[in-house]
Design a binder for these strands. Structure first.
Length: 217
DNA sequence: TGCCAGGCCGGGT
DNA sequence: ACCCGGCATGGC
């Protein structure tokens, strides 16, 4: 079987098993972008607490987040961990968003995303995964998001090597999938779901795994 | 109880 | 160009 067909089969099996996941969990592009920063190396349940704190204070608006001082922001995002550094990173991002794009997601995502990606990576605190999450989930641009789950699951099944870099893994998907926003969106969501529930780092339950067919290829 | 979670940076090799 | 310690809370 070609890699292309294997990937599609994996995707279809996951989708059939979990059903549509409707990512990203967030109401507006701005909330999604904020969430992408807060969720760095952090479980989503903790991210929700931080987001809810911001919502309560009506801070999920670019100019309000722009104005709040960093110490106060840090207290609000505290439940997500790394709260000091995350407050700084949120500030760095919001500065770009307000100063360069007037706090408008429409303006920010007006291009194809390639220039924007470079700008995002220049923000201290935004790396490749966060940038791609912002582009894909807030901006609907076809950038495949690679995360720890992707690496774990696909290297376990020998489809990529354990020591591949972010860009090598991303290339693997780019070269074997159509550049389709909906597919990229749902595929990444399915990978995360599999990594959280079945293909965990401690006790992978391979008997239940919807892509268990890979073990007998 | 200790380990892990939807990374990234900065300093040292 | 890699490698590694630091950042920190909440859930299991």
């Amino acid at each position: 079987m070609q890699k292309r067909d294997i990937l599609l089969k994996i995707y279809n099996s996951l989708y059939n098993y979990f059903g549509p996941l409707n990512w990203w969990p967030g109401d507006t592009p701005f909330e999604i972008m904020v969430g992408a920063i807060i969720t760095q190396n952090t479980s989503w349940s903790n991210v929700e607490k931080a987001i809810n704190n911001l919502k309560k204070e009506n801070l999920l608006e670019p100019r309000k987040l722009y104005r709040i001082n960093q110490e106060e922001l840090a207290q609000l995002v505290k439940p997500s961990g790394y709260y000091n550094i995350k407050a700084q990173r949120l500030k760095n991002f919001v500065n770009l968003f307000v100063n360069d794009f007037e706090g408008s997601a429409e303006k920010m995502f007006s291009g194809d995303g390639r220039e924007l990606r470079k700008k995002l990576l220049n923000v201290n605190g935004i790396g490749p995964e966060t940038a791609d999450s912002i582009l894909l989930y807030a901006g609907k641009k076809p950038f495949f998001v690679v995360d720890a789950y992707t690496k774990r699951i696909f290297s376990r099944h020998k489809l990529i090597s354990k020591d591949s870099t972010y860009y090598q893994i991303q290339e693997f998907f780019n070269q074997n999938l159509d550049r389709d926003v909906e597919l990229f969106n749902e595929f990444h969501a399915q990978i995360v779901m599999l990594g959280k529930t079945i293909c965990t780092s401690k006790n992978p339950d391979c008997a239940k795994c919807p892509i268990g067919f890979l073990n007998s290829e």
